[in-house]
Simulated assay, not measured.
Amino acid sequence: MLAYILAGGEKTEFTPQGKAFARIHGKQMVEYVIEALQGVSEIEHIVVINNQKSLLDNLREALQQPENPDEYILIATCDVPFLTADAVRDFLDRCNCEADFYYPIVGKEDQERRFPEIRRTYVKLKEGSFTGGNLFLVKPSKLIPLLGRVEKILDLRKSPLALSAELGFSFVLRMAFSKLTGMLTIRKVEDRVAELFQINARAVISPYPELANDIDRPEDLLLAENLLSG
């Protein structure tokens, strides 16, 4: 399996080269991700994408590289220094290779047990409250045609009215109601994604919060240094 690390981007508040190269205990953040992936026997080759453009541009470049776009590739972001080989291996084991796209989600209890110092945003569903991970198992041939739609949704994310129209008002209302009641199921969300994007996507519940904790701000580096000091 090929693995791609998205290390480029427009933000420069970490280093002029981007946050992938910010140092934690003298080691570049992207190196922590590389080392975790190197510990997984299923991964044969690791490619770091660093074109200094947007995250979506990095994703597009990664998806266009494999010779066989119908074979699964693993995509990871560069800013998950807590990532471990065990977490990656467990995620891959939980993917049954029947869908086009797999995305890990981590339960609130697992997150707060392992990283009580880190605050995360959760979505309350019938199965529990979850936060998203930073790995994706995907068939490039299925995702490439959707990048334009993904870009549009990202552009609309700060305009709730326009975003609601794009996703469907009824679905947005159910999501908002679910945040209060937790009545929306994972499968219902997956079904809506299938309707919107014509892709068979599956959420994978992972017990490893190491997948979910990324570094968004320079001040997060200090917290990462403290947590990785052992």
Score class of each variant (00 low, 15 high):
residue 183 M to A: 05
residue 158 K to V: 11
residue 157 R to Y: 14
residue 103 Y to A: 03
residue 117 E to G: 05
residue 119 R to S: 10
residue 136 F to E: 08
residue 160 P to K: 06
residue 166 E to T: 12
residue 131 T to M: 10
residue 151 E to L: 09
residue 167 L to H: 06
residue 139 K to N: 09
residue 146 L to H: 02
residue 183 M to D: 09
residue 115 F to Y: 14
residue 149 R to S: 06
residue 158 K to N: 15
residue 158 K to F: 14
residue 137 L to S: 02
residue 103 Y to N: 01
residue 164 S to R: 07
residue 146 L to E: 05
residue 169 F to T: 02
residue 132 G to K: 02
residue 102 Y to T: 11
residue 136 F to R: 03
residue 99 A to M: 13
residue 107 G to D: 02
residue 134 N to L: 10
residue 149 R to D: 05
residue 123 V to D: 02
residue 113 R to V: 14
residue 163 L to C: 10
residue 182 G to Y: 01
residue 108 K to Y: 03
residue 98 E to N: 15
residue 114 R to E: 15
residue 103 Y to E: 01
residue 124 K to T: 04
residue 181 T to M: 07
residue 164 S to E: 05
residue 108 K to H: 08
residue 125 L to F: 07
residue 155 D to K: 08
residue 104 P to G: 14
residue 120 R to T: 13
residue 155 D to E: 15
residue 144 I to A: 11
residue 161 L to A: 10
residue 150 V to T: 08
residue 168 G to F: 05
residue 132 G to C: 11
residue 124 K to A: 01
residue 111 Q to G: 08
residue 171 F to W: 06
residue 126 K to V: 01
residue 176 A to S: 03
residue 155 D to C: 12
residue 152 K to R: 09
residue 155 D to F: 14
residue 171 F to A: 04
residue 162 A to M: 06
residue 107 G to A: 00
residue 160 P to C: 09
residue 156 L to N: 06
residue 165 A to W: 05
residue 153 I to K: 13
residue 125 L to Y: 03
residue 179 K to C: 06
residue 103 Y to V: 08
residue 121 T to N: 08
residue 133 G to H: 13
residue 157 R to M: 15
residue 122 Y to A: 03
residue 138 V to A: 07
residue 115 F to G: 08
residue 136 F to C: 11
residue 169 F to C: 06
residue 163 L to F: 05
residue 128 G to S: 02
residue 121 T to Q: 07
residue 171 F to H: 00
residue 168 G to V: 00
residue 163 L to M: 12
residue 109 E to H: 01
residue 168 G to P: 03
residue 123 V to L: 07
residue 105 I to H: 01
residue 115 F to Q: 11
residue 112 E to T: 08
residue 175 M to K: 06
residue 125 L to P: 06
residue 140 P to L: 12
residue 100 D to V: 08
residue 169 F to N: 01
residue 135 L to F: 10
residue 119 R to Y: 11
residue 144 I to Q: 04
residue 168 G to H: 07
residue 103 Y to G: 04
residue 104 P to W: 10
residue 134 N to K: 12
